[in-house]
Design a protein around this nucleic acid. Sequence first.
DNA 1: TGCCAATCCTTACAAATGATAACATTTTAC
DNA 2: GTAAAATGTTATCATTTGTAAGGATTGGCA
Lengths: 213, 213
Amino acid sequence: MSSKKISNAVIKRLPRYYRYLGELLENEVVRISSKELSERMGVTASQIRQDLNNFGGFGQQGYGYNVDYLYNEIAKILGLENHYSVIVIGAGNLGQALANYTDFEKRGFVIKGLFDVNPRLVGISVRGIEVMDMDNVTEFVQNNNIDIAVLTVPKMKAPLIANELVSCGIKGIWNFAPVDLEISDSDVVVENVHLSESLMTLSYRIKNEGGEQ
Amino acid sequence: MSSKKISNAVIKRLPRYYRYLGELLENEVVRISSKELSERMGVTASQIRQDLNNFGGFGQQGYGYNVDYLYNEIAKILGLENHYSVIVIGAGNLGQALANYTDFEKRGFVIKGLFDVNPRLVGISVRGIEVMDMDNVTEFVQNNNIDIAVLTVPKMKAPLIANELVSCGIKGIWNFAPVDLEISDSDVVVENVHLSESLMTLSYRIKNEGGEQ
DNA sequence: TGCCAATCCTTACAAATGATAACATTTTAC
DNA sequence: GTAAAATGTTATCATTTGTAAGGATTGGCA
């Protein structure tokens, strides 16, 4: 579909542009130049222009970028104009915290169900969504056209569950388990959030960067 | 201290090496060659050797790497042989979830306190740690030699709190608020976990990579 | 013991990727 | 109608990654 491959580094920057544009929008800023945006964000203007040009020309010479327009264009690029049906697997502390986070819903990620193996959790309700037994997950995904599964389960269980999800047609997995999931189906994408690794990086930098740069 | 600057790309890979070595250790694997590790991790053997060589020669020619030894050496590099005193600011769902996560404690990140402005939360106990009022945070940080603050507060409040923490001597901030903190003190390091951005990246990839590679 | 195979450490270099700078063109604004 | 501003685009520079090769050291085996 898309002719040239967009590099991962660019993709990772888009949400940040989106965030800054959202804030400009809240402050009723109508237009912005790559130069000014670059100063606010701490990147080069050149990089902003080049990043955006991967997807088309959203600005106008002599004028800059219309904030509202660019904001919505980036939303389209990121696929945020779609609505996604989401389930959370693992209704422990983290799973419940994510289910409670209403900001995701605002962006179109609608949580349709929670699942857990723990009988104590099955039946309780989080923001009006009942926690169901893991045995029903396959059926639920198929009957409700679930797009995304959030995985907050122990690392031992994650690979098996992931494969189960893949075989019943999930499109994406947001993985919080500290393990690299091996997914056979290339249509399914996995996005990892490895909190422990992030914390270790912080530890390294405290140890080594303290008093530099 | 360290003569040459280690690139960020290398640092980000270290925790993953550490995780794989930990699993090898659990499986009682005594030694491993860069070749075999590279096959398991899906990277090149050369990269592994070069990454590790940034910090010293941990292997032996003709033998490979001793798993236990390398595991502990990487822990030292990452600063995991230290114990860090941690506080969590924002005792909402995410804050409580992180406070409940015992794995961090195993790695030496010991949670010493939780803080919130909400009077309903102040006084409750999470894993034996009482939630305190935000008014007391400065005093607490100074009296208890707190190293790291975990920030799970609304984005509007984050910058102010961050500056407060910096001025009372915190060393690192693990930031979950969707905002880029501007820290004046260069000794203080900030590690961001922007969950929304991660989710948007997933959205993009579902939209664009489905059916590829 | 003595040799061969395995494997690391190191250096060099090529290729790919990413970031910055420069420039030409278009538009705004007066 | 002109000058300034700002994009889109091309070119250049920098970083990262991958590959290769050679020397050095160890383990294993006859």
